[in-house]
Amino acid sequence: MIEQIFFGQFQSPGPVMFQIGGFALRWYGFLIASAVIIGLNLCQWLGQKRGINPDLFNDLVIWLVVAAIPSARLYYVAFEWPRYAQHWLNIFAIWQGGIAIHGALIGGTITILVFSRYHQLSFWNLLDVLSPAVILGQAIGRWGNFFNSEAFGAPTNLPWKLYIPFANRPPNLTSYAYFHPTFLYESVWNLGIFAILIALFFYGLRNPEKIKTGTIACVYLIGYSLGRVWIEGLRLDSLMLGPLRIAQVVSITLVLLGTAGIVWLYLLQKNLPDWSERKLVKN
């Protein structure tokens, strides 16, 4: 595959990693599983430095997988319902692609809030630890789109153009063979944001008075979402809400929320509200 990318035509080798009899391991599933494992280990390492018991992340990752992946799929299906209305069993065929990161973020955020409240952890401290792992996982997971020959952009003749098989091209663009590799743009962008978040994290360990709790989470929202706004504008398969690209609408909203968080922390000099600090009432 490496030779194919750098010495030949830039194109996917196919969605299947290998197959033995009726069993097929798909790149998409392999990459998601790899992102989870790498993210778990990173969270345990960073969490320990922020005073969080690393063993708690073993439980949290189960919570997140159970909540985030289904919510990412349901979010996608909700905006693509005509594709699934007549073949609703395909809703469960997640290995074929078709999950939305914003759906995962919604499900994951709710899960983290419940988890942090249950374990009496600071919600924002936990988010600061998770954010670098999340953006790294997004950078890894985007390559699933490459192997599935999906989520590409408009036709292009740039040197890094991506060849898309005829069967995967939009019906109105079948005469074009090469498209923007938007998965690559987002993966590289996310790696850049990951580097920024890690730098902020360790700078904050040395200078806790300068990097307040919640800053890293807010920078994640701003950084990732700014990239998504312009990359989404290139894509041909955007989830739509009328004339609007829903990912752009959500991303702009997240930029505003992240900016509001930074203003709250540094201009107003206040801590972000942390609902997890309220004690649970047990019967």
Rank of each mutant, 00 (worst) to 15 (best):
A199C: 09
L184F: 06
L205R: 03
L191N: 09
G192S: 07
N172K: 09
H180L: 07
I193D: 01
L200F: 12
T174F: 04
F194E: 01
F179A: 13
T182F: 03
Y203L: 14
F183M: 11
R206K: 14
T182M: 03
F201S: 13
G192D: 05
Y178N: 11
H180N: 04
V188K: 00
H180Q: 12
N190G: 10
S187L: 01
N190W: 02
A167E: 15
E186G: 08
L173C: 11
H180A: 10
P170D: 06
S175Y: 11
G192P: 03
A199G: 14
I198R: 13
F183C: 07
R206M: 02
L184M: 07
P170A: 13
P181V: 11
L173D: 02
F194L: 05
S175I: 10
W189N: 00
G192M: 08
T182C: 06
S187G: 03
S187C: 09
A177F: 06
L184W: 02
I196Y: 00
N172H: 14
G204T: 13
L197Q: 11
N190P: 05
I196L: 11
Y203R: 06
G192W: 02
V188I: 14
I193Q: 04
Y185M: 07
A199S: 13
S175C: 09
L184Q: 13
L184K: 02
S175K: 13
N190K: 09
S175P: 00
T182V: 10
H180D: 01
N190T: 06
F194M: 05
P170Y: 10
P171G: 15
H180E: 08
T174R: 06
Y178V: 07
I196R: 01
N168D: 15
L205K: 02
T174S: 02
F201N: 07
F183Q: 09
